[in-house]
């Protein structure tokens, strides 16, 4: 309600729609307050604030696919609604748990990249937490794959490192 709604009298600011364009060229309509949660979109909207009609603005997000965006948008929307209410920490925690519980490792990684790029720090924190929990009992190989890191140790160097702390390799989960 705070923003100046110039033309249409009945539409509030939260109902204003912005168009986001994903890396794979899809256009997604989102409420302006949701779009403002994405740093690049916020910057773009500020730079183009002289544009009279928000509906005409198309914000390019070249690093995020439509598939990831369509998961992020409902999350952010609901998260905003929850945070608007007083003392909802437990509810937010439950909501975050529900959102992350069934994510595959690949999806978790994709969302993490997107949350980092879009500057959605509350989601990034949650995803980092989930990732840490998921990898803490896993093997070195699993973590390399998960984080997309190339092993640059020679087999001798790696064997030497492993020999320094053999207990750290006990009780590791199956990949």
């Amino acid at each position: 309600m705070a923003s100046s709604s110039s033309s249409s009298s009945c539409s509030s600011s939260s109902e204003k729609k912005i168009t986001l364009k994903s890396s794979d060229g899809e256009a997604l309509n989102v409420e302006k307050n949701v779009a403002l949660e994405f740093e690049p979109a916020k910057g773009f909207l500020e730079d183009n604030s002289e544009e009279a009609d928000d509906e005409a603005i198309v914000v390019p997000l070249p690093n995020v696919s439509a598939a990831v965006l369509s998961e992020l948008i409902p999350y952010v929307k609901q998260r905003l609604e929850l945070s608007a209410k007083p003392v909802q920490k437990k509810l937010i925690k439950a909501f975050d748990d529900q959102f992350t519980r069934h994510l595959s490792d690949d999806k978790l990684g994709e969302l993490m990249l997107a949350a980092n790029y879009l500057g959605v720090n509350y989601l990034l924190d949650v995803l980092c937490d989930v990732t840490a929990d998921r990898i803490k009992n896993k093997s070195v190989e699993y973590v390399r794959e998960f984080l997309g890191i190339q092993n640059d140790f020679t087999p001798e160097e790696e064997a030497e490192l492993r020999a320094q702390c053999p207990w750290a390799f006990e009780g590791v989960d199956q990949d």
Binding site: N116, K136, I149, R162, A168
Partner: peptide
Amino acid sequence: MSIPLDVITEILSLLPVNSLMRFGCVSK
């Protein structure tokens, strides 16, 4: 997929020491 180093740093900072000792072998 390659996760940026600052995000990896945040993830690792949440891990217990035992895991960190093991993940020293991930890369240089």
